[in-house]
Design a protein around this nucleic acid. Sequence first.
DNA 1: GATGAATGAGGGTTCATTCAT
DNA 2: TATGAATGAACCCTCATTCAT
Lengths: 209, 209, 209, 209
Amino acid sequence: MITPTHIADAPRASEPKREKGRLRVAAIMEAGIQVFTEKGYDAATMTEIAARSGTAIGSLYRFFPSKESLADALLLRYALHARNGLAEMAQQVADLTLESVADAFVDFMLVLQSQRSFAIALVDARGGSLDERARFREVMRGGVADILRKAVPGISPAKAKVMAVVLLQTLKGVISTANEEPAMQAMILAEIRELVRTYLASASGRKSK
Amino acid sequence: MITPTHIADAPRASEPKREKGRLRVAAIMEAGIQVFTEKGYDAATMTEIAARSGTAIGSLYRFFPSKESLADALLLRYALHARNGLAEMAQQVADLTLESVADAFVDFMLVLQSQRSFAIALVDARGGSLDERARFREVMRGGVADILRKAVPGISPAKAKVMAVVLLQTLKGVISTANEEPAMQAMILAEIRELVRTYLASASGRKSK
Amino acid sequence: MITPTHIADAPRASEPKREKGRLRVAAIMEAGIQVFTEKGYDAATMTEIAARSGTAIGSLYRFFPSKESLADALLLRYALHARNGLAEMAQQVADLTLESVADAFVDFMLVLQSQRSFAIALVDARGGSLDERARFREVMRGGVADILRKAVPGISPAKAKVMAVVLLQTLKGVISTANEEPAMQAMILAEIRELVRTYLASASGRKSK
Amino acid sequence: MITPTHIADAPRASEPKREKGRLRVAAIMEAGIQVFTEKGYDAATMTEIAARSGTAIGSLYRFFPSKESLADALLLRYALHARNGLAEMAQQVADLTLESVADAFVDFMLVLQSQRSFAIALVDARGGSLDERARFREVMRGGVADILRKAVPGISPAKAKVMAVVLLQTLKGVISTANEEPAMQAMILAEIRELVRTYLASASGRKSK
DNA sequence: GATGAATGAGGGTTCATTCAT
DNA sequence: TATGAATGAACCCTCATTCAT
């Protein structure tokens, strides 16, 4: 189980102590997301991230003492985001139909889409520390599994976990649509939506047997 | 539409004319797959690929004039492999139940698994040229769509294409199981199998309405 | 000839006027000795010295406007220490046998040992300004030569100076024992003691001829 | 006991396989000695060593994959030199008077002087790996101790070892003369020579008692 | 005066690629 | 043709020093 403590760990070298420092950190993280997303972890360079955020290279390293620590910080922040979103969704699940839950999953992915593609760059392609990446995956799986347990009454925890893994894999497709032509994009999205509904429905049916 | 011509385009500098040359190329490609798989495109080095294949670095560059060209060649070969596998599957579809087709997809993924993880390294993580990566995606989507058109009578070509995209995304999950614990691995695999069956079944039902 | 004036030259940016400032300077110098000793001049960083002394980096630079100036200040203070010690020894020489003088030299080295290893770090390994290092050497040589002139009646000033150089070199061995195993350490120390006695004795004999 | 095997270990990344490579390695080592001697280990830069030897930085790293490995190689080569010199001296000891042996030690130091000052830079000031530095010290001590055992009949091995340590420390003074004015230089040298004779003589006397 | 953020030259090292042998 | 030495731009990161707050 992921606790807030696990997540609140600060991967920064030194917490900025002045307002200016906080702004700088924000600018760096923004630039970091951009560059990691565009080029992937390995091809991204700290020099470019510094330039893109209007920061001297030395200043960047003041706050993030290594490339990995920057990636970890970004991953961590995204994990928090996602966890909150999933937690929120979990609270509303009781009042929703299965179909609405399915849609909520897809919508959730869409909302995170911009950041999500960077998360893929970092998680799937060796960005950040092994630990942080594993932790990130657990957060996502745990959050989705929680929702499934509420949405599909009677489902076993183990089953919920497995379904979460498969569901997340399918939902990743939402991100990829970003690279498709608009017409194709809409169709793929609709198809994913349909598949997720079907998946939840069948799961609900299966368990009740 | 992908024609053989598209695929047979040789990204190699010079087709080796002698037996010795062909062996050398094979050794290089084998080493390339290994190293790209283990380290990812960026972290893989030409020097290591040369060493691992018992080739001098200069010789490597005679056959593959750049790192990208080597990645392209590997991607191409893998695409051919996959295309053949999918084509074969297409021929048998007529005699199979929908459920069997679903299983065949998963099995196909499993068969390719070893090479597949390298393909992911190259396609998802910016290995090879943009063109080659796009081409590779088209081959996969086209092959899967072909099968869907045969397996689900009455499906429209557009619908088949969209389904292929979503299906491939879901099937990618088969690869990822490699990193899970054995017990989890089996459960995820079974779950994917189930989802694919459900997906095909529902598609078959939908179209008939 | 070294006069107090030469030595009292303050390499500090600004003599601290208040008690607080003096404490701060003391803390910095203490930390400086530690870090220079542990890491050597080059590898020591002003940041670490600041941190180790509980001082902000900006404050450190208020008192010591450069790394070199800090090293110089430390060298200077150590030179004063040594000079006083040697001066004291000089006063007692008249009442001592040659053998006791020899022992006093070795003991003197042992007393300074802790600080001495930092002095070696700075003098032998290019820490501090050339000037300061030369001045330091002169102080040591002068002090030892003074003692020799008193301990070995009739010795010429030039001869005393030369002997001081050679004697100091031999006495450096006392410091190095710090890195040997305890058993070896004791033996080396005894051996040096013996050699110094022999040296003084032979010098005393030679000059009388 | 140091065996040739210990010493022949090659710290190079890849032994040069062509004549040109061997020349390059020689040039690099020459430049390395110069720069390490002038600036000390830390302050020496690989860039300067490369420039001084007319080598591209990449080529330098082909043969010496790290700064440390270069320092180690230099230390090793010097150790071989010294060992051979000491071994040679050992063979002649039987025919020499004690005084001649003392002179031989000083002369040996003088012969090695140019390289010796770089060895001091590396051994005393953290250059090269800890292992290599320790090994170097052992080689020197062992070689000198061997000679002492032959020159001073009846001396115990342990005593020879301890004397070697102290003797080497004193002989280091020969190197330092390089920085003195010529007149002073000659006097110091003569003084060291005298001290070493006295030391050997007294040792010979002591043991015989 | 104290603080700590900012700066950027420079350091060690890597690696795709070229080219002389 | 096969080999491996050569090249150098670029990378990640450090740290002495300055300066605004």
